[in-house]
């Protein structure tokens, strides 16, 4: 431990930013990091649900195979969106279109799930 014990640690913690925060790469609240991790958590959730859907679809017949393929294609199309916003430094630019697209992917999975459940009847 080279750091001597002392009362003052001037570099820690949030401090007023003289630049006004506009161009500052660091945010005391770690907001960009938290947002990226939230995207990664969501990507993991999507992957798990896709695996469940594929497992349900694979019932041996051709229709099931096609539906499993559809689930995998949907996963492959939406995952890059999660990936783009879940990696990198700095706050990712909010292009506004990623969020509806990602939600649309979730709705598509729900619809696919309903089709799969009704097929099994």
């Amino acid at each position: 431990m080279t750091q001597p014990r002392g009362p003052a640690e001037p570099r820690r913690g949030p401090r007023p930013d003289p630049d006004g925060g506009g161009g500052s790469p660091r945010d005391p609240g770690l907001q960009p990091e938290r947002t990226r991790l939230a995207w990664r958590r969501s990507a993991l959730t999507l992957t798990v649900v896709t695996v469940l859907a594929v497992r349900q679809a694979l019932s041996g017949d051709l229709g099931g195979l096609l539906l499993a393929g559809a689930a995998l294609v949907g996963w492959g199309v939406t995952l890059p969106i999660y990936w783009r916003r879940g990696t990198g430094t700095g706050p990712a630019p909010l292009d506004g279109r990623s969020l509806p697209a990602v939600a649309l992917g979730a709705v598509a999975l729900a619809v696919l799930g309903v089709v799969l459940v009704l097929r099994g009847l």
């Binding site: 938290r34 995207w39 969501s42 649900v49 799930g113 799969l116």
Partner: peptide, 21 residues
């Protein structure tokens, strides 16, 4: 992040439905 939390809630419900089936 709030949106993402809701999205995960929705995905969890979808996953729950598939798991029930």
């Amino acid at each position: 992040r709030t949106f993402l939390a809701w999205l995960r809630t929705g995905l969890a419900l979808v996953g729950g439905g598939l798991a029930v089936a």
